[in-house]
Amino acid sequence: MPLELEVFPFHYSQVNKIIRENLKKGEREFILRGVNGHRYLLAGVSADIKVTIYGTPGLDLGAFMRGPVIRVFGNVQDGAGNTMDEGKIVIHGMAGDVVGYAMRGGKIHIYGDVGYRVGIHMKAYMEKIPVLIIGGKAGDFLGEYMAGGVIILLGMHTLYPERPIAGLFLGTGMHGGVIYIRGKIKESQLGLGLKPYPLDGSDEKLLEGYLKEYCEDFGLELSEVLKEDFIKIIPYTHRPYGKLYAY
């Protein structure tokens, strides 16, 4: 039986405390209702648990977390998945700024749009490859300083049909990882030195795998998502500072 909690009257600290206490008792499934700007939910929680959230979680949902699978029915504020280690966040709505900052593992699936500075400084190590999929559009600085992992930008479910799929300075300072974009992007939107490339066979296989899971999360048709061609952005160097100095 999942633990159901009406969190509206509680401070975020109390909510996290209740979750941690019940975790110790062996509870593995939580349903939080009435979430309204509660910050840091599940921050630093290291456990394989399932959490369903109704409402709008506040800053840093699942920051530093290792393991939880969170499904949010609503939008989320800034900083979701900040320095997240393992686990998954599925957002049936939009997300704010700096989603997945320095994320090093796990997955974040977002149905709609995201704000600015999303996926900054994501990094991968060995078998840990973070994946961030955005169903809508993104603001400026998507994937800035990216050092590893995968960002997929679909631009499909958006509140802003008039806007370009991503803002400016996409991938600025990128030195690892890959960004896939459904459709086209102007080169002027990319960070210094970056270029869009067509996909090769291995990209397509990878992309299909990631998108299959994404479509299952939101009940979407994979064939619909794959109807348009994708491009990819990869770093032009892994050593951006390699030739900067005089000794």
Partner: peptide, 16 residues
């Protein structure tokens, strides 16, 4: 937790 031989960059600001 980064690959061998890659530059380890700490940007000037924390972007959050």
């Amino acid at each position: 937790m980064i690959p061998v031989g890659s530059d380890a960059l700490s940007p000037a600001p924390h972007h959050d």
